[in-house]
Design a protein around this nucleic acid. Structure first.
Lengths: 187, 187, 187, 187
DNA sequence: TATGAATGAGCTTTCATTCAT
DNA sequence: GATGAATGAAAGCTCATTCAT
């Protein structure tokens, strides 16, 4: 693991626990087992650490949605795959997931590029997929923007709960329930 | 308006714009037209201001849900009334709504009592209502906790968009779309 | 004395002893008997303290030269008055004088407005006075800019020595010698 | 060119542009095209680089003055030769000249041996030469220390201007004006 | 009650220096 | 010798909080 990855991972851990604003760079350094100075060899400032965490996660999510967007499968299947992936990522990287969920609502003027990307572009991509499904008659005529947004946040809300109760959480059940709820809302 | 209310209102305004962590007590004082010292005559510390904002809003929401819980009307109607109320409150107090939405995700160890209340108890109350509706056969058998949570966050997500684009947002359309989406997901 | 003056005075003292770059804001605060935070209530940042020291001294020197410029007395007398004033100021405010002398040579890109003023405009004013004296035939035809600059720095050089050996320095002698040297160089 | 010379030259370049305190060892390393570590193989610390720049330049100036001191030529000629030399050096090594001029006023407690040498011994040597000229009746009875100091700084002041406006500066004119001014002040 | 100047702990960030490779 | 990633002490600056007026 590169030192940058080491720092990203440990930063996510501390920020997930403490929140970005309660996390000092020293805390991140201690968790990563490096000196503060070392962090500044890899990140220009504290904000960029958070930025990088978002960027990495955003890339993962986006890549999947982009791929789904192009594939010739039904929306139903796409939604299943997306939820599968999401919950797998959640279990694999709970810290990063927590950070995404907790730190994604700075007022836009302070917002990081990557946070904006995450919070705006992901629903956007989802809306696009919904739109096509409407055209194909797979789902009923809804407002794609609005419903994409609702779905995105519904998933996010369940993710929060899941992550906060990681140890005894039935991820399979959650995925199933969530899928049914969303899908019924669309047809 | 009491001085405490004056401070609460103006604090909500600034915090909505800047975010809690980027808001200084001085900024709140300036907005409210009082001295910093005055604020500390009404609030023990900065956190308590946020706490109070949540408390006031929570009470409003909770009161409604409590009432709905007891009334002998169908879930469908309850949901309608809740959404009506929610969107009305949103338009009436967009600052407070923004604060609720943006500041409700501190890590639990730093969390304020009132924030916890808001984020946990509101879905809880909703879950209770859902549960009864299941028992009565009004809706299908879902996991009430999880779906209440999903609904809560779906509404929250739409609220964010609405508040951020206040000036040219079709609240009626949003309410209608959201209601249909949720309701279809339940039956 | 206002608190701003208190800080300026004590800052000049420490900076004269230690040099601007070896002076921490904490040192200034200690010398002035206030907290660091207090300094930042009166100055935006460390640089502004230095800036203000220069500004105050510059105003003093400039005011005199401006007045001399307008008066209908001979250059010889003007020069005498200026040197008198300069050496009086030197004895009255040796710390400020030391700061002026020691900190006035930052590379121009980092230079403070007030430092630039001091180092450029003072010789400029002197050059103007010389120019008029040439026109009136009081002194010989020299390059006013260049000689003004030479005079300015000659005075500055003597000032350094004087300030560094304050306790046993014959200011009257210095003034006399310097005047004669400069004056002979002009006629 | 030895590596030490390479570093000295490039350090002078950067320090002339940025000032000693705004120059990082990394910047010097980059300019010289070596690694930071390499610099520390040739210089004990950052200060020693500056020290060395002064030492080299001081030796040049001192050598000339020492020689002039011993020669049996008139002060007038000595002064001419010195100014000639000085302005030639200025044009040949403007970076080093700039450094000498800008960095020679650290408070004495932080001062480098070589800086002290430069700023104290050069005027001292000049004073000695003046003293002999007085004894020989070549110039009038002045205070040699003080006037040497004034001359030294007058030259320094003109040098600053010259170096700052290198590209379009009439060095010959400057030399001539300065010589006349100084010489008239002495006789 | 209202004020706002004063406080200082605690934060982010820099950079001269080291040392394993 | 040359390297440059790692270090951590030390700096500038912020801002919640206090308290004399």
């Amino acid at each position: 693991m590169t030192k940058q990855e080491l720092i990203r991972k440990n930063a996510a851990k501390v920020i997930a626990q403490e929140g970005y604003h309660n996390t000092t760079v020293q805390m991140i350094a201690d968790e990563a087992g490096v000196a503060v100075g070392t962090i500044y060899n890899y990140f220009g400032n504290k904000k960029e650490i958070l930025n990088y965490i978002f960027k990495v996660e955003f890339k993962k999510r986006t890549k999947l949605l982009d791929r789904l967007n192009k594939e010739e499968i039904s929306l139903k299947e796409k939604l299943r795959i997306f939820l599968d992936n999401h919950f797998t990522a959640l279990q694999a990287n709970p810290n990063e997931a927590t950070v995404l969920v907790q730190e994604s609502r700075l007022p836009s003027k302070y917002s990081l590029e990557s946070v904006d990307n995450f919070i705006n572009n992901l629903p956007q991509l989802l809306a696009k997929i919904l739109n096509e499904a409407i055209d194909k008659g797979e789902i009923k005529a809804i407002n794609p923007q609005l419903i994409a947004n609702a779905i995105f946040h519904a998933i996010r809300g369940v993710a929060i709960q899941a992550v906060e109760n990681q140890d005894d959480y039935d991820f399979e059940m959650a995925k199933e329930e969530l899928f049914n709820f969303i899908w019924s809302g669309l047809i």
